[in-house]
Amino acid sequence: MLLTRRNLMQTALTLGAMHAFPGLTWAQARPLVFATFTGSWEEAHKAVLVPAFRKATGNADMVLDPMLSVDQIAKVTAAKNNPPIDVMLHDPGPALQAVAQGLVEPYPVEKSAYYKDLIPAAQEPTGPAPFFQVVGLTYNPETVKTPPTSWADLWKPEFKGRVGITNLNSTLGTGFMVELAKMHGGSESNIDPAFKAIEALRPSLAAVAANPGQLATLFQQGQIDISPGNFNAIQILKARGVPVEFVAPKEGAIAFKTTIHIVKNSPNKELAFKLIEAALSPEVQATLMEEPYLIVPTNTKVAMKGEIAKALAKDHAEIASKFVFQDWAKINEQRAAWIERFNREIRV
């Protein structure tokens, strides 16, 4: 092609005009931006959710911008009127923060085809939960011959110096503490018993990891033999050949709703809605439930199968009876104080 000054100028002017007045182009101002989580979430969403969205919208332009919940909130807060993200994905704690700070558009429930099929716990008008994360006990089957059955097993003398936990920076760490409090007569608003229990656990602790990801490294290095762990993280480790197993303790595995939200003032609200609909659809959820993703579905039209049915729950009724959901609104009220207390008291 010949590049003359004239047609270069023309192109530049046209592009400039299209940029200055996005309405001219009749299409999206910018691609739909979905801030998923990093790692296995990103892989799963790229492979399953994005193709489903493209199919539903006739190849609408979208990008995945994986980042942590807290970074999503920071980015949207910094530019509330013109947010760089259209769809956010959140753990329960950050989700409540985002809603409280007015960063979230209510989900158009009446328009949604799938919302009513979700299990009751997943029906959140501020943003439904397309997936669960499940926390139970993780152990090394080569060194731990009798599989643990209860959170209380962490205190067994044979695990002296072999137990790993994480600090309260993570959802996992905080949820685990709340569960300990409940076991010893406390609750979301009374964490004291959990701190006493951790104090008693101190001789057994081999490591307090800075985040759940570090627990994986510690298992690989043989630094710890047993810890609370995330079901999905363990499946990835297992697939890589690390000797780890997951069990749901008899008190019930802790379940976190991962909620998905339309960002307030998003220029792509309609597409954002379609992406979330795709995430709630039985087709996407059924595919994500299979190997290697193993993500727990929330749509009751999806029948539990495979590893999830075996290790966690065989149907949605069992989810309701076997999973423990925590009250994160209550947890958020005091979480800052707990983190500070953990900083001070838990020194190994």
Binding site: N169, A207, A210, N211, Q214, N343, I346, V348
Partner: peptide, 13 residues
């Protein structure tokens, strides 16, 4: 944070 773990708190963390 990787070598020190979660219980050794330094200013950046």
């Amino acid at each position: 944070s990787l070598i020190g773990g979660g219980q050794m708190l330094f200013m950046p963390m």
